[in-house]
Amino acid sequence: MSKRIVGPEIEKLIQLLAKVPGLGPRSARRAALHLIKKKEQLLGPLTVAMGDALEKVRVCSRCGNIDTVDPCMICSDPRRDAATIILVEDVSDLWALERAGAMNAQFHVLGGTLSPLDGVGPDDLNIRGLVSRVAEGGVTEVIIAVNATVEGQTTAHYVTDQLADMNVKITRLAHGVPVGGELDYLDEGTLTAALRSRTAF
């Protein structure tokens, strides 16, 4: 049994930080030490910000995004193209597409992908909400922007089936060679997808 070298409060901080994605025990110890050393500049303001987030952050009842208002700022923005919905697996995917700034559309967050092995079925995802939004009218295109995994593709096919009779165009993100990518460094699956999704030059 290892000897305790810090108090239980610091140990608890390290244990909680270690649960954050991308931080293991060693990184969590470094982060905790840095926060403690910068108590006034970092730890105090971080504590206040986390308290505010705990109290005010909510899930948008329309699209599944997280924000401090419901509906979220994206759903409430009248400048967005309400006829186009980009379907994503998670809020992090929504944020990534927003950072790219490629389209000024609406979003819909599924909250994951279908995965029978993990016990995730259609009722565990926000698919019904998407179908309801399309059924309201005004949506002309749903862009399926899920990950190119087996679960992602299974989910994409299921969603396509659910929207089949709703007079809406369904498209998906292209898969293939990334901008700046070199063919020699790409895997076979990416190269195959790129060849199948080839376009006129």
Rank of each mutant, 00 (worst) to 15 (best):
S2T: 08
I5R: 14
G7Y: 05
P8T: 05
E11C: 07
L16K: 10
A18P: 13
L23V: 02
G24M: 07
P25S: 07
R29E: 05
A31G: 05
H34D: 11
H34K: 08
H34C: 00
I36A: 02
K38S: 06
K39R: 15
E40M: 15
L43K: 06
G44H: 07
G44V: 10
C60K: 06
S61N: 12
S61W: 06
R62N: 11
N65F: 03
D67M: 04
D67S: 06
D67Q: 03
D67R: 10
T68I: 08
D70T: 04
P71W: 11
C72N: 11
M73S: 10
M73Q: 07
C75S: 08
P78K: 09
A82P: 02
A83S: 15
T84Q: 11
V88G: 01
E89G: 14
D93P: 05
W95S: 12
R99N: 10
R99V: 06
M103F: 04
N104A: 11
Q106T: 04
Q106S: 11
F107H: 13
L110D: 03
G111I: 04
G112M: 06
S115P: 07
P116D: 01
L117Y: 08
D118I: 02
D118P: 00
G119S: 02
D124P: 01
D124W: 04
G129T: 00
V131W: 09
E136A: 15
G138N: 14
E141Y: 08
I144A: 09
A148C: 00
E151S: 14
T155N: 07
H157G: 01
T160E: 01
M166G: 14
I170K: 14
R172Q: 05
L173Y: 06
A174V: 06
V177P: 07
G181D: 03
L183T: 10
Y185S: 14
L186D: 07
L195H: 12
A200H: 13
F201M: 08
